[in-house]
């Protein structure tokens, strides 16, 4: 299953790396990523496209636990079987 996750991360030491590494560690293969600083420079807007036979919701719950993650959601309609 391929799906996309959208996140807002607080800008802090290696926040993007922490989120990406968590996905890989939990069994979700990263197949696409983009990240950009917000205009004020305090947050990172991140999109990760991932593949896994595990449930996307499980990863969303794991990502939500990261201290840097201000918000995270599955991209609407972005889930492909």
């Amino acid at each position: 299953m391929r799906f996309t996750v959208e996140m807002v991360l607080r800008r802090s030491e290696r926040a993007f790396e922490r989120a990406v590494a968590l996905a890989g560690r939990r069994g979700y293969e990263l197949v696409g990523a983009s990240a950009a600083l917000s205009e004020e420079g305090l947050t990172l807007l991140v999109r990760l496209t991932l593949e896994s036979d595990r449930k996307p919701e499980t990863l969303v719950h794991q990502l939500a636990k990261l201290i840097e993650v201000q918000s995270v959601r599955l991209e609407p309609g972005g889930t492909l079987q």
Binding site: E13, R14, E17, R18, A21, R25, I67
Partner: peptide, 9 residues
């Protein structure tokens, strides 16, 4: 990174 709840440098 994989074994902390959080970390600071």
């Amino acid at each position: 990174l994989p074994v902390v709840k959080h970390s600071f440098l």
